[in-house]
Design a protein around this nucleic acid. Structure first.
Lengths: 156, 156
DNA sequence: TCTAACTAGACAACCATGTTGTCTATTATC
DNA sequence: GATAATAGACAACATGGTTGTCTAGTTAGA
């Protein structure tokens, strides 16, 4: 199908886009209008323990300033609250709100549905193989969510 | 390997990134410092027949103004020349220069090498199967290169 | 044929998301 | 206790996208 390296790259990108677009538009249609992948990933990172702006920046390979901006948006929209850390007056501890958890689980279930649909298309074993191969390709890079940047442009 | 939909999405994105990052850093090390994926795709589109700014915008699903900005960069760096169209005084015909073709073929060969390496890792048939499955997933979306936006953030 | 509609491209203003650099307050470390 | 490191705020800027508006040129139709 794919004849050259560039096509393969495009194919990978297209597949990602295809999933994420479907997810964001679905989320939008359910009332989460401006929720972009970057927000999802930031929430995930916060839940995973990135409880401060600097921390979030480190974990997502982005400057703390950029992280702070993202957090500001999430706070403004009520997905995250930020409160002074009693143990360290410099820090502000982040916490995902109920609304934040809700949108996360909704997003995840949408993506999960997409994966299921795909599984039906190509078969369960085939999907597993594909995932294994992709994992092999990305290697260590898989560990880090990394640069929200390349995930930011979207909206559907 | 991948347990949920979000992981699969991330895996796809990671795979793309992994290829493109390697390519851009390789290009950078060979002297093409500021060459980003967006430029590559724009050149490809121009070669494929998008010979004006408006045209390029349409083909890459971007406003003509955005396309014009990208073109301005490519022209400035000598990858593209823009000359008045003798048949239509409104238009400026775009043409990829020798340098442009050179960087394109270099980029392509780098990506091709990456694909080869991957082929050795997982096997030729497996790679073909994987590509076929991905093609199935993206469906029609595969046709359009689409939004340079999600391809823009990079640099390596 | 002449007018109306469309098209190309230029320009400006703006938005989003990232970057660096600088500053203050606080905490850690020697 | 002096020095270094860290958190976060703020400002300036780069990039890459958007709309909106304008002019010049083309095309189509009454």
């Amino acid at each position: 199908m794919s004849r050259c390296g560039a096509d393969l790259a495009l194919l990978l990108l297209g597949s990602y886009r295809s999933m994420v677009n479907a997810a964001t538009s679905e989320l939008a249609s359910r009332g989460y209008e401006d929720f972009k992948p970057i927000h999802e990933f930031a929430l995930r990172a916060i839940v995973a323990g990135a409880d401060s702006a600097s921390d979030l920046g480190r974990r997502t390979s982005v400057s703390k300033q950029a992280a702070a901006k993202t957090i500001a948006v999430l706070v403004e929209r009520g997905y995250v609250v930020s409160a002074p850390d009693p143990n360290d007056a410099r820090r502000k501890r982040l916490q995902v709100t109920g609304a934040g958890l809700e949108v996360m689980s909704l997003g995840e279930s949408i993506l999960e549905n997409l994966r299921e649909k795909w599984k039906e298309q190509i078969g369960s074993t085939e999907l597993a193989t594909l995932e294994a191969h992709l994992t092999e390709l990305v290697g260590d890079a898989a560990i880090r969510i990394d640069a929200p940047g390349w995930v930011a442009q979207d909206s559907a």
